[in-house]
Design a protein around this nucleic acid. Sequence first.
DNA 1: GGGCGGCCTTGATCGAGATCAAACAGCCGC
DNA 2: GCGGCTGTTTGATCTCGATCAAGGCCGCCC
Lengths: 254, 254
Amino acid sequence: MPAKQGAAQETESAMTDRKDIHNSDVPVLCQSCEARHKGMCGVLQPDELMALSKITRMVKHDAGAELAAEAQPIESYANVMRGVVKLTKTLEDGRQQIVGLQFAPDFLGRLYTKESAVTAEAASDVDLCRVPRTALERLMADNPALEHRLMQQTLRELDEARDWMVTLGRKTAAEKVASFLYLIATHLDPSHEGEAVRHFDLPLTRGDIADFLGLTLETVSRQLSKLRADKVIAITGNRHVDVIDMARLKNRCG
Amino acid sequence: MPAKQGAAQETESAMTDRKDIHNSDVPVLCQSCEARHKGMCGVLQPDELMALSKITRMVKHDAGAELAAEAQPIESYANVMRGVVKLTKTLEDGRQQIVGLQFAPDFLGRLYTKESAVTAEAASDVDLCRVPRTALERLMADNPALEHRLMQQTLRELDEARDWMVTLGRKTAAEKVASFLYLIATHLDPSHEGEAVRHFDLPLTRGDIADFLGLTLETVSRQLSKLRADKVIAITGNRHVDVIDMARLKNRCG
DNA sequence: GGGCGGCCTTGATCGAGATCAAACAGCCGC
DNA sequence: GCGGCTGTTTGATCTCGATCAAGGCCGCCC
């Protein structure tokens, strides 16, 4: 059981003027999200946001905060507004595997089941828009279009999980690390155009990357050093990555 | 490119009396399925089956037949009625990973996308109920309950994919093989009660199992030999498995 | 029957990545 | 400045599973 780095402080009060926002008729989710994601807050559309505006809560979490625990009841769903959330599973003896990463504006939470099958943890500092479980389920019951959009995200997550199974099962350590960097480069793009961004901060520690790739942190470190020595990337201050040659990085993905 | 063992013969004519069935008002899907799966044919319910009965086709495929190819357009969806379908992904150099197994009465096919992201291949002899793509999408458009049921299966597949990522990323060869046997034991149960069955035929060759587990076929063979030597299982005729000690098998899953 | 092709098993050796170990950099509170 | 803490790098060694290789079993076709 590793100690939690950042306490799971549910700092709703960290929103400077949350009360004001909630007393107005402007939906919170929409306000903070619209600018960033082209008028749609993750899966929720303006009218749905309006319907939920009185009961959603913008919540900030520090890196390391546990947002949901394996085999624990789910009380609320959320939209990731900023930052990265990692989904992990752990074997009894402590071996851990990251089974998914969620970037803004992903929806967070397993629908239609009492308990979470994964642990959700803030990988970086994150902002979430929380929606109580029952409220979202009620909204979904008479809003098939909403369920349809959640279906789309679920299918996309399934595609991504299956892509990752190839990486886990069949790629070498060097290919795994290259694949990880390429994944981050294509997912961190704030404009979400699918274009790879060539300049970013890693949202995960070496240990987390290892848990994502099914490697040890030493192997991850060595492979990153090799990519640096080969002038495919440059790393500054442990976390910041410059992709010097995106084509060569892509080639190394296997 | 390995040669296909069984030709992908789309033997619709293999149904002895298919024409008769289609000329009657009895829905094909329902007839063959109801007995086996308690009145529901996979995701389709009696009234939906009735609506589709004129355009569905019962199709038989031999083991090895390719049902859908990576990056190829999807023309029809299907329900697996009998047998096991493997979903695979292949890297350019030929390395292959099985990213999913579908058992009766699973729904088969990626909704809402033009091209398949995986190759679907009959692992054993299979029976499928095919539904043309457009017909199912039309039915789904004004039938939210149907999409809801497909959502349930998609979420279950996502859970299973994530479970398997732990196996691929963090388990030893011995644990992987034990996990595979346990998976098959719990999924092949025709009554689908979730109970592990202790007497079954492997639907996959050693090579396929290796592709599922991210191992080589030699390692799979050695681990099976070890389980046999340790009297956890007995194997007769290469394919048939008797689980002698289910608790001990489960213990070895890691 | 005999030969052939799939599929499986077992043995010998090799190497990629794990493990063990040491040291270093950045950061914070004192 | 200094010690302690977290996260990272690098080196040395070991081990599990891959690779290379040979042989066995079984069904099928000539």
